[in-house]
Nucleic acid binder design. Structure first.
Lengths: 130, 130
DNA sequence: TTGTATGCAAAGCGTTTGCAGTGAT
DNA sequence: ATCACTGCAAACGCTTTGCATACAA
């Protein structure tokens, strides 16, 4: 990203406003509101640049395609709502996990994913729409 | 799986002997030792049957393709070695994670993945070969 | 004007599926 | 002799890449 384009601007804006990790497809849909015809390849290329620059962080959840969020630069985990499938940040951590590892193994890092119902889904009795 | 075939037998045997989650490709390589020419489609079809029957459990790790292991029927987590990329079972769990979730969210389950060095890699000063 | 960024379409990669032939029962 | 299972190749979904054009600087 050496040049400022309306596509790149719309993509960054979409991610900033979401405040939660988004899938490339969700980014495209949101950014396309301001830039109709935005191509998915452009979304992927912009994501790659932003990740390389450290602006974005890739969020990998078990069995799911990668999502992207603004880099936080602090250790945190994620919560996946079982009803709406949205992912939220969890700004807390139980700490060291060395105790869980088998004897002789050294733990360098860990990832935790929580699953359940987000507040919105808990409050709405209806099944999801999207 | 209604009929017993040498392919199916070799696939199940490969998984049982591994004692750790394997990728479809690893299963093919191991099973092909006893059944040369074993097709990858056959591996996938057998895996699917075994998962449906409850014989196998799918192991999803963040950002990786699914692995398969014999069903354990007890809650456990996984350890991914940063050097050899093999995955091992962790038969321990820190327990309830409700405390980590944001206010208003309900935690129903969780997944934990540990990363570090397995015992073998810790003891061998050499970089990995496979 | 120059050359990066875009959009489209083709290519990649892992996984699934259609089909004709193989082989377990 | 059946018909489920297998191997091969085409199809799929997501992501990446090639290429000619558009547009930021």
């Amino acid at each position: 990203m050496e040049r400022i384009t309306k596509q790149g601007t719309a993509i960054m804006k979409a991610i900033q406003e979401a405040q939660r990790p988004l899938l490339p497809q969700e980014i495209q849909e949101a950014a396309a509101l301001s830039v109709p015809g935005l191509g998915i390849a452009t979304v992927y290329r912009n994501i790659k640049s932003l990740v390389d620059n450290g602006m974005l962080t890739t969020v990998y959840l078990p069995g799911e395609n990668p999502r992207y969020e603004q880099s936080h630069h602090h250790h945190h985990h994620h919560f996946h709502c079982n009803r709406c499938d949205k992912v939220f940040d969890v700004h807390d951590c139980p700490g060291d996990m060395q105790q869980l590892a088998p004897k002789g193994f050294t733990v360098e890092s860990h990832e935790i994913t929580l699953y359940g119902l987000c507040e919105t889904c808990k409050l709405s009795p209806q099944p999801p729409s999207a």
